[in-house]
Design a protein around this nucleic acid. Structure first.
Lengths: 133, 133
DNA sequence: CTCAGTGCAAACGATTTGCAGGGCC
DNA sequence: GGCCCTGCAAATCGTTTGCACTGAG
């Protein structure tokens, strides 16, 4: 899975996975994506979904979320933004505040890393879970 | 594992796990902690390490890191701080820049969550990996 | 026709769980 | 003596891999 060369084929599986992910505003897990895609391609394998999500992410077409949790989640929205996670129901939503690149500068001045990126993950309780909290 | 009540016992296993974790400035995975602790308590079970790390984290004595990656990592340093992760060797280091609570305020104004916390995770290449990069 | 991509099933690795025995309170 | 906690092993769950077949180019 290291060669993203020009021999790469744009298969219907790849197409449908990308399409379906960009259609929703949620941040589905691999299994949720599998279920979505299965409605269009009933014989697709779970392994294929995993592999294609990985390739699509490496191509920069979708993004693999850097939020913690047991399962990986994906996002079809490539606009730079942060995320928030409900500690009750585990859903993930977008936070569209401007990316603060100053953070990277201050971080750079206090460690020996070449800093490439950063991500802010908020946690809280979503409005659906609040009444029960 | 939901009752952190007063009947709780402070066992030697719990003591050693806490001690060993606070002794290092790295951010070890459960297996690394298991190996560290095994030098003191050779008969300890991996399950016990998992369970106690969980309890210690819930007690606020150590913290479970919210960084992504295949394995969970723990931190014995409870001073609020951020983290950076090397994309090559996967090591995690501390970033001691001041926690920016303003971020939570801006996030609160654009979503329907009761925001409880936030964490910034930087990613980059550490000085050990830079020469090879 | 070729070879990247697919479907399927088995393998894997991290974590969790079930349970009988052990030892603090 | 009760029961929380332990050690151990089996179970679970997300993800990866191996492989023969398929279909895009």
């Amino acid at each position: 899975m290291d060669k993203l060369d020009s021999n790469m084929r744009w298969t219907s599986q790849r197409q449908v996975i990308s399409e379906e992910l960009k259609k929703v505003k949620s941040h589905p897990t691999v299994n949720e994506i599998y279920e979505m895609v299965r409605k269009k391609l009933p014989r697709i394998g779970l392994g294929t979904v995993y592999q294609n999500l990985d390739i699509l992410a490496k191509l920069g077409i979708i993004s693999k979320l850097e939020v913690d949790g047991e399962q990986k989640r994906f996002d079809g929205d490539m606009t730079p933004h942060y995320h928030i996670r409900c500690i009750k129901c585990k859903r993930v939503d977008d936070i569209f505040i401007k990316m603060d690149r100053e953070l990277e500068k201050s971080a750079a001045s206090c460690c020996d890393y070449k800093i490439l990126d950063h991500h802010v993950q908020f946690s809280g309780i979503c409005n659906k879970c609040l009444p029960k909290a």
